[in-house]
Design a protein around this nucleic acid. Structure first.
Lengths: 138, 138
DNA sequence: CTGGATCCTTGGAGATACTG
DNA sequence: CAGTATCTCCAAGGATCCAG
């Protein structure tokens, strides 16, 4: 790595990385949902196929009924998953990813790739975080 | 849309979208940081170039000193931004994205693209969220 | 100007109990 | 089985004051 860190960001980023600072409201909506602890885990479970309520509760170990219900409802509301309720006498409800949810999953995959790649780098910085402050050789 | 939503996810996702359900710990670390309300806004401001503390406080309107300081410290700690402190008598501190931070910004750009594309779709689902429950023609 | 330290409030998350 | 309703609790976030 060169010294481009602080100095060279006069040439900041690529063409698609521009974040409209004022318009990032709905972007944060998405990130809030994806960044939510349980949402990602539920989606991760759902990518394996159709799952029932109790299946999800088993697969995502730490989740409470409340959080599972809320998370699922939110995802359904956003059109990322579907909820299919069978009016049987042992009630059965199945959840599955919609195409929209799958496409989001695909995007998140890129982020996961990035996280995997730079995970060590970040942890490295985090351990010796004192040297991040640049002394401008005054 | 066809009925592929709930039924067809036996063929779930693309090749890169696999989320290792147990390993998503550090992925969530990253998402927590990126998904944080202020982090994204600070990064968005920083993409324009070097900024001072007070600049950031002005550009990100709602942020408090506390949150700005904490967010910046976290980002520095993760190696996403650099902190340059000039030991002058009106103290001056400049923050800038590191190459690592820029690369993250690039990835986030993809997510922003996705959000922009499917924003309407999500809002549409959100308004008439009652019909998301599939009736299996019992 | 750039923060550190402190108090205080609020909403989100867990646990529990109950219903269709 | 699949939720809903209610309570409590804690920690994130804002406001304020103080310091280098």
């Amino acid at each position: 790595m060169d010294t481009a860190g602080a100095a060279a960001n006069t040439t900041p980023v690529g063409p698609c990385a521009r974040i409209p600072a004022g318009q990032s409201d709905f972007v944060r909506e998405i990130l809030d949902r994806v960044g939510d602890k349980w949402t990602l885990l539920v989606i991760a479970t759902l990518q394996h196929g159709v799952r029932r309520y109790s299946d999800l509760q088993n697969t995502v170990p730490g989740i409470s009924q409340r959080m599972l219900t809320l998370t699922l409802r939110q995802l359904v509301q956003d059109g990322l998953i579907t909820r299919t309720a069978y009016a049987e006498v042992p009630p059965r409800v199945e959840y599955a990813l919609t195409p929209l949810g799958i496409s989001l999953l695909d995007i998140v995959g890129s982020l996961i790739d990035w996280a995997s790649t730079h995970h060590d780098e970040i942890r490295d910085h985090r351990t010796r975080f004192g040297q991040a402050t640049t002394k401008p050789t005054s």
